[in-house]
């Protein structure tokens, strides 16, 4: 398979998925319109995975369908008797294995990219409670809970995620960010939002009765607006 055909398959697959998913959801979804560098990378990896595994998937389903339609019992037509073919068996072990090795490459680079928190412009501490989120801005001495997190657009935000009681998980699908909030540990993640707006998420780890109501709202504003907002917060407004 040449690189060009891979690109073509990749493109076709992405187009097919895009069509299916546009029908499925709103236009802002991360796989159509990623808003963070990580979400971009996750989307690219997802489409690569689709392109590389899609062929096997379609082949298997088509062969099953063809076999069932074509090889129905008919009087006078005896069934075939073959029951092994070493060459074929080696082939269908080796080709998927090689495909997975190919897929492991971008998985590793994307993992490394997500994992390495770059030098951040702002640190926020995210603390899960039953059933709300507390946010702290240690560089500014600002602490609040049960309100939207506010961050500046185009800046690298380091999030230190933990919990005060049970395990929660801070999940904003648009950002490609999901990080468990474990009591007794601090997990590190990061995001950089490319545009302003309000983004919604919610707790992704079952945390008790009102787990379903533990929403997340992130307001992304211009750096100037953020400065005004944080000054106001510092004054206790």
């Amino acid at each position: 398979m040449t690189f060009a055909t891979l690109r073509l398959r990749h493109g076709l697959m992405a187009a097919a998925v895009a069509v299916a998913l546009v029908a499925a959801g709103p236009a802002w979804a991360w796989y159509l319109d990623p808003v963070t560098p990580v979400a971009h990378e996750v989307r690219t990896l997802f489409f690569k995975a689709l392109a590389l595994t899609g062929g096997f998937f379609i082949l298997a389903e088509v062969l099953v369908l063809v076999a069932v339609l074509r090889f129905r019992a008919r009087p006078g037509v005896p069934p075939a008797t073959f029951h092994e073919n070493v060459r074929l068996e080696i082939l269908w072990t080796a080709i998927p294995a090689i495909t997975l090795v190919i897929l492991a490459g971008p998985t590793f680079t994307t993992l490394k990219y997500m994992e390495t928190v770059p030098k951040s412009d702002l640190t926020v501490e995210v603390i899960g409670h039953q059933w709300f989120w507390e946010y702290r801005y240690p560089e500014h001495g600002v602490v609040f809970a049960n309100e939207p997190l506010v961050v500046p657009q185009g800046k690298i935000i380091a999030a230190d995620v933990s919990s005060i009681d049970v395990v929660h998980s801070w999940f904003v699908a648009d950002f490609g960010v999901k990080m468990d909030a474990n009591p007794g540990r601090v997990n590190h993640t990061w995001f950089e939002v490319e545009r302003t707006g309000t983004f919604r998420g919610q707790c992704a780890e079952l945390c008790g009765v009102l787990h379903g109501d533990m929403h997340i709202e992130v307001r992304v504003v211009t750096p100037e607006e953020f400065d005004r907002w944080i000054e106001q917060k510092k004054r206790g407004a």
């Binding site: 099953v64 076999a67 069932v68 090889f71 019992a73 075939a80």
Partner: peptide
């Protein structure tokens, strides 16, 4: 099942 006499 390929080449068999399938009874569904």
């Amino acid at each position: 099942i390929w080449g068999g006499s399938i009874r569904l």
